[in-house]
């Protein structure tokens, strides 16, 4: 999982917020993004991107954990035989 934070705007601040909230995934700091083509959707927003870079699922808002898990599991199973990296 990769995050994109779109709220914290002070340099160095993001790390602090992430420690505070026990967030362990790597996260872009949106101020540091060079190419903002994603338009920064309203948060929360979730995208599932497959091994070739195609968007396979998209939710603006909070989907059920089950929907996300099922979608991820299905994709990982589909992709695994063709990739070396996991």
């Amino acid at each position: 999982m990769i995050g994109v934070n779109s709220w914290v705007h002070d340099p160095g601040e993001l790390k602090k917020v992430m420690i505070e909230h026990n967030i362990t995934w790597r996260s872009f700091d949106d101020e540091n993004i060079i190419n903002p083509q994603w338009n920064f959707p309203a948060t929360p927003a979730f995208f599932i991107i497959d091994h070739v870079g195609t968007i396979r699922h998209k939710w603006i808002g909070k989907p059920s954990e089950k929907s996300v898990d099922t979608a991820l599991d299905k994709l990982i199973q589909e992709v695994e035989p063709t990739t070396i990296k996991k």
Partner: peptide, 14 residues
């Protein structure tokens, strides 16, 4: 992360 399945999460503090 090409080659892997990625969950991309746009988040903010609340």
């Amino acid at each position: 992360y090409r080659g892997q399945v990625v969950l991309l999460y746009f988040w903010s503090e609340f």
